[in-house]
């Protein structure tokens, strides 16, 4: 035994405050989102409302990526495809059966969750680059399918495609038909989704995921059913993506197949990293980067495609200097004003 007291094991250095995820009370999520959403609802014009509604919806899909990457260290590159699946089902059910919007939305979430679970099957055996490649190929497969099928727009048959004047828009929920109410509607659902993720992090699933991230042998030795908890993470991630897709469909009433290329899944993952996969507000930041930044550039008369270059630089910056993303840097700042280390 050493005669000198070892305060900290050499192999496990103290993590900087911002790299340590300290689950905040769920109320903090609700409060921050309420203030943020109210400010947007009060001050944004129609152009910005549409962009920020999409940003709010996409923050849910980023939250799903963050569950996989931040909690389990798994890289899934098919998240935007699952957004498309959720959108497709929401449109199909909405046009075909005309149920309340919430029913179509929920159906989109459930189907995407099931597909997310299916897409996650490789994760039970694969990790790292191989999992990333397999999921990227799945995103590519979805791109091909959706290019051929397109999104339902009120037509007959399984695909629900209509021609010309037969095309129709998906009706928004009865209580949120206008832009501002629909933005708030999306904000409420995004908040609930973020709280759902946060609730997972601070309870049994979060603890199991933390053990799996530490090492599967450690997790099994702690009685964790690794396969079940990985599958649950993929299903949750898919559900959030599906809900995001449904909300996007409700925002503009229809979806365009070309917007769901495999590149979008790559972009989404990259921005989840830039926004920060370890903090709940990282998902909101990534959602804003995905939709608000291009809108800002467009507003300034700059081609929105410039964002691809900006995102590339931001990703490089995040990987090189801020692996916990913008949210991690914000958390660092906040930690200077609060007591660190204790929950």
């Amino acid at each position: 035994m050493n005669t000198q007291r070892t305060l900290v094991p050499a192999a496990v250095p103290l993590a900087p405050e911002a790299t340590v995820r300290k689950p905040r009370p769920l109320l903090a999520v609700a409060l921050a989102m309420a203030i943020f959403s109210a400010a947007i609802a009060l001050f944004a014009n129609a152009f910005w409302l549409s962009a920020l509604t999409s940003a709010m919806a996409l923050s849910l899909s980023v939250a799903g990526v963050a569950v996989l990457y931040g909690q389990l260290g798994l890289v899934s590159l098919c998240q935007f495809a699952l957004v498309g699946v959720g959108g497709w089902v929401t449109l199909r059910i909405g046009h075909g059966l005309q149920p309340p919007f919430e029913v179509s939305l929920l159906a989109g979430g459930v189907v995407a969750a099931l597909l997310g679970l299916l897409f996650g099957v490789p994760a039970l055996r694969l990790r790292g680059l191989y999992l990333a490649l397999v999921t990227l190929m799945l995103a590519g497969a979805f791109q091909i399918v959706i290019s051929a099928w397109g999104f339902p727009d009120g037509g007959p048959g399984f695909l629900g495609r209509a021609d010309g004047v037969g095309r129709s828009m998906l009706a928004r929920p009865a209580l949120a038909t206008e832009a501002v109410p629909y933005f708030l509607y999306c904000a409420v659902i995004a908040t609930l989704g973020l709280m759902l993720v946060q609730a997972h992090k601070i309870t049994r699933p979060g603890r199991a995921w933390a053990l799996i991230r530490k090492g599967e042998t450690v997790a099994i030795a702690s009685g964790v059913n690794v396969l079940a908890y990985k599958a649950w993470a993929f299903a949750l991630s898919g559900f959030l993506a599906g809900i995001a897709g449904g909300l996007l469909a409700g925002n503009v009433g229809q979806l365009e197949g070309r917007a769901f290329s495999a590149f979008e899944s790559l972009n989404l993952f990259a921005l989840a990293t830039v926004g920060g996969a370890f903090h709940w507000y990282g998902a909101v930041i990534a959602g804003l980067l995905l939709r608000a930044l291009p809108a800002l550039l467009t507003d300034l008369g700059i081609d929105g495609y410039v964002t691809i270059g900006i995102f590339g630089v931001a990703l490089f910056h995040a990987l090189a200097t801020a692996p916990t993303g913008i949210a991690g840097q914000i958390a660092n700042l906040l930690a200077r004003f609060t007591r660190g280390g204790e929950r």
Binding site: K22, R207, A210, R213, S222, G223, R343
Partner: peptide, 16 residues
């Protein structure tokens, strides 16, 4: 696990 509290490290096993 670094980002779980001491108690949660134990609770992670109790869960199962």
């Amino acid at each position: 696990v670094e980002d779980l509290t001491a108690r949660d490290n134990l609770a992670a096993l109790a869960d199962n």
